[in-house]
Measured scan of single mutants.
Amino acid sequence: TRVETATETAWISLVTALHLVLGLSAVLGLLLLRWQFPAHYRRLRHALW
């Protein structure tokens, strides 16, 4: 049971790290898009909202 718990903890930390990385890359990508294509971003936002 001790090994299982350790594996579970490792998986949880791995998944958390993955989610953090994905979230950060998504935010960075959005910022980059907004910085590179302001007109396109505004049009996209206008279409979405």
Rank of each mutant, 00 (worst) to 15 (best):
7 T>G: 08
16 T>C: 12
19 H>N: 14
22 L>Y: 02
35 W>S: 08
1 T>G: 04
3 V>H: 00
30 L>H: 03
26 A>G: 15
45 R>N: 02
8 E>H: 08
7 T>P: 08
11 W>T: 10
20 L>V: 14
23 G>K: 02
16 T>Q: 04
18 L>C: 13
15 V>C: 09
32 L>K: 02
40 H>G: 11
12 I>P: 12
18 L>Q: 03
1 T>V: 10
10 A>S: 14
4 E>G: 06
49 W>R: 01
26 A>I: 09
33 L>I: 10
15 V>K: 09
38 P>L: 09
7 T>Q: 12
10 A>K: 14
44 L>H: 03
30 L>D: 01
5 T>I: 04
25 S>P: 02
29 G>S: 10
11 W>S: 11
3 V>A: 03
26 A>W: 15
34 R>N: 03
9 T>K: 14
34 R>A: 07
9 T>Y: 11
48 L>K: 01
46 H>M: 15
41 Y>K: 03
26 A>P: 06
2 R>Q: 14
20 L>P: 03
8 E>I: 06
32 L>A: 15
1 T>I: 14
31 L>A: 14
8 E>L: 06
26 A>E: 00
11 W>R: 06
18 L>D: 03
36 Q>C: 09
28 L>K: 02
11 W>Y: 08
8 E>P: 10
27 V>I: 14
48 L>I: 12
24 L>A: 14
10 A>W: 15
37 F>S: 04
39 A>S: 11
15 V>M: 15
41 Y>C: 15
32 L>G: 03
22 L>R: 01
26 A>K: 02
43 R>F: 04
29 G>L: 15
11 W>L: 09
34 R>S: 06
3 V>P: 00
28 L>A: 14
43 R>V: 07
36 Q>H: 14
13 S>F: 14
30 L>Y: 07
38 P>E: 05
21 V>A: 06
32 L>Y: 12
15 V>E: 05
24 L>C: 13
23 G>I: 15
47 A>G: 05
3 V>D: 00
41 Y>R: 03
19 H>C: 15
29 G>F: 13
31 L>P: 03
19 H>S: 13
26 A>S: 14
29 G>P: 03
41 Y>W: 15
5 T>F: 04
14 L>Q: 08
46 H>E: 07
31 L>V: 11
24 L>Y: 01
29 G>C: 13
23 G>V: 14
37 F>C: 09
49 W>D: 00
4 E>I: 09
26 A>Y: 03
15 V>H: 12
37 F>W: 11
49 W>A: 02
17 A>S: 05
13 S>Y: 13
11 W>D: 07
26 A>F: 14
42 R>E: 09
19 H>R: 03
25 S>Y: 04
44 L>R: 02
21 V>P: 00
3 V>M: 04
44 L>P: 02
23 G>T: 12
27 V>A: 12
35 W>D: 02
10 A>N: 09
4 E>A: 11
19 H>W: 15
23 G>H: 00
1 T>W: 07
4 E>Y: 07
42 R>S: 11
22 L>H: 02
43 R>D: 07
48 L>R: 01
17 A>W: 14
17 A>R: 03
7 T>R: 09
29 G>D: 03
48 L>M: 13
30 L>P: 03
32 L>E: 02
11 W>H: 11
27 V>G: 09
33 L>P: 02
12 I>M: 08
24 L>K: 02
16 T>I: 15
15 V>S: 08
39 A>Q: 15
27 V>H: 01
1 T>S: 12
17 A>K: 04
34 R>I: 12
45 R>K: 13
19 H>F: 13
43 R>I: 05
47 A>L: 05
40 H>P: 08
29 G>W: 04
28 L>V: 10
45 R>H: 04
48 L>V: 06
13 S>E: 05
33 L>Q: 00
9 T>G: 13
49 W>P: 00
21 V>L: 12
32 L>I: 05
35 W>R: 12
17 A>N: 03
40 H>I: 08
9 T>N: 11
16 T>V: 12
17 A>H: 02
26 A>H: 00
6 A>L: 10
39 A>T: 11
18 L>K: 04
42 R>T: 09
18 L>A: 05
39 A>H: 14
43 R>P: 03
44 L>Q: 01
